[in-house]
Computed example of a mutant assay.
Amino acid sequence: MLSLILTAELSGVTELRPQDTEESPYYYTFKVQCTSCREVHPNWVSFNRFEQHEIPGSRGEANFVWKCKLCQRTHSASILAAPKAYEAEAEGKKKGQKIIDIECRGLEFTEFKADGEWEAKGIESSTPFTGIELLEGEWYDYDEKAGDEVAIKEISWELQPVNPRPYLQARVGTDVIVRLKWGQTEYKGRLESIDSYMNVLLRDTEEFIDGKPTGTLGLVLIRCNNILWMGSAENVEMTDLGLR
């Protein structure tokens, strides 16, 4: 998992966030890298958190589905929740704050571009500001109610890995999917436990290769260094074609 971290100096405004609704979604724009072969896609990619795309091999859906041209593996990513607002800090102070969390399966994002429009509101007046563009790294306007200039300056972005341990501990007792680093092999089962080395124990485990079921394995221990990615199996159903 990755978190998109924003650091900025806000003057006169607060609650900075993307304009992101189902009627008018925000398209998050990234550079993407395959974690299998380390190939970086040369172009920017964009997706929103409302559209769902089927993952080839009938392994469910995701906001973003991408096939690496070098190794031909298909990877995916999904935004887990609505964006959080960036709150103004004390005068003259900046602090990185999380905007979104992204669940990545077989890929990672290496760079973010703030395409699209953002919104904020005046600290004193609550005046709404919409259509804010952050690509230039700064933004200025005037708050008529407050009678003062407002600004967003020194904008920077960071894609920060999320500690997977709390994420996995919270899913003990639920169904998960584990994909290995080789052989297009996946396991679907109930997460029984996870140890301090991030080794995973699954119960009622089913094996899939190239998206097709190969049999039931029961209780399975998977060493952490064999795992490419893990994710929730929520809304993933068994069919005669594999995982859907």
Rank of each mutant, 00 (worst) to 15 (best):
E149F: 07
L228Y: 08
E186Q: 12
T127R: 03
R17D: 09
W66A: 04
T127D: 08
R223K: 14
V172M: 04
Y167A: 04
E206A: 04
G231T: 12
S24F: 11
F112M: 03
Q97K: 07
N43L: 08
E15F: 14
P42L: 04
K153C: 05
G106H: 01
E87L: 13
R59A: 15
E124I: 08
R38S: 15
C104D: 07
V172Q: 00
E158S: 05
S46T: 06
L191H: 00
K69G: 12
S232C: 15
S58W: 11
E15L: 06
L217Q: 05
Q169E: 13
L80G: 03
P161W: 01
L202Y: 00
F30V: 06
E133S: 04
D115E: 14
K69N: 09
L10R: 10
L217I: 01
E89D: 09
E186H: 04
V162C: 02
W229T: 09
C104W: 01
K153S: 10
I152R: 09
I155A: 08
R59Y: 06
E133M: 04
L80R: 13
L6R: 10
W118R: 05
K188A: 06
I152M: 03
E103K: 15
E133V: 03
Q169R: 11
G147L: 02
Q33Y: 03
C71A: 10
R73S: 13
E119I: 02
A62T: 05
R73T: 11
E186M: 03
Y142I: 02
G147M: 03
Y27R: 07
D143N: 06
E234Q: 11
T7N: 15
